[in-house]
């Protein structure tokens, strides 16, 4: 099939950037979306033009590096998949595809479609861990964890940190990302000791990074490749309110 692409091009963080149009032909429905871009880039390179820069790595939907806001939706039209797992059979001949980078003040553009998501790392650094050193920990089976709790924690822990939640949210809020980690550790017994401090610090860092506020539209869960649900944001709210009311941190 033949497609028309409108892709955001921006030389670097200081460049203003603009859309450019490209025609790609003979696209096979078995190609992944990123392979279609590979083909475009090979053609551009042969013509001596700068290839389109985009983030990607594992190409099996788990590393969270690929992004792309495709025709108004992070990771494209299919639910519960990342861009790298999106295949061209989801499009049809003659389609116009508009590709934009994630847009958020907390995700500045590096180049073309590549954005800086280090704000996510800093949110985790603020408290997304259990304070244990290597060694000196109890036997793994010392604490039984009910299967339902472990399963819920796993639901949250599946977050791949891609940032689609922020990209989809009309407020560019990072609540779902933050909630996923807070929720995972709040559910597990290992996370209890630092429960209050963790949520206070992570939310404070999230605010500092300049993400917007959650207005419960649910757009984040709708585009999440791992389908992380709104109940985790509710748990984050609960944890935060509880921590603010009860913690010793004045």
């Amino acid at each position: 099939m033949n497609l028309k692409l409108k892709i955001w091009r921006q030389k670097n963080a200081n460049d203003k950037g603009a859309f450019e149009s490209y025609d790609v032909s003979d696209v096979s429905p078995d190609m992944s979306f990123l392979e279609m871009l590979d083909v475009l880039n090979e053609d551009l390179s042969r013509d001596g033009k700068d290839p389109v820069h985009f983030d990607h790595d594992c190409r099996e939907g788990i590393c969270g590096m690929c992004s792309l806001y495709i025709n108004g939706k992070p990771h494209g039209p299919k639910d519960a998949v990342t861009t790298c797992q999106l295949h061209m059979r989801s499009f049809k001949d003659g389609d116009i595809i508009v590709i934009e980078p994630w847009r958020a003040s907390a995700f500045p553009v590096h180049k073309d479609l590549v954005v800086d998501r280090s704000s996510f790392d800093r949110i985790i650094q603020a408290g997304g861990y259990v304070n244990v050193n290597t060694g000196g920990v109890p036997d793994a089976n010392e604490i039984a964890i009910p299967k339902t709790i472990a399963d819920q924690a796993m639901d949250a822990a599946q977050c791949i940190g891609c940032g689609a939640c922020v990209a989809a949210c009309k407020n560019a809020s990072a609540m779902l990302f933050t909630a996923a980690k807070v929720s995972q550790l709040a559910l597990l017994p290992q996370g209890q000791t630092e429960r209050h401090t963790r949520v206070e610090r992570m939310v404070a860092q999230m605010e500092e990074e300049g993400f917007g506020n959650c207005t419960n539209t649910g757009a984040c869960s709708a585009v999440c490749p791992k389908e992380i649900g709104q109940e985790h944001i509710a748990r984050l709210n609960r944890e935060y309110i509880g921590a603010k009311a009860a913690s010793d941190n004045v």
């Binding site: 259990v130 109890p138 039984a144 009910p146 924690a153 822990a157 996370g191």
Partner: peptide, 22 residues
């Protein structure tokens, strides 16, 4: 054997059986 202990202590949600053990 130490690795599993370490990971569980970090909050890695390994699969569990109905009794709550790994």
């Amino acid at each position: 054997v130490n690795i599993i202990d370490q990971c569980v202590a970090q909050g890695v949600p390994f699969a569990r059986d109905y009794g709550g053990l790994l």
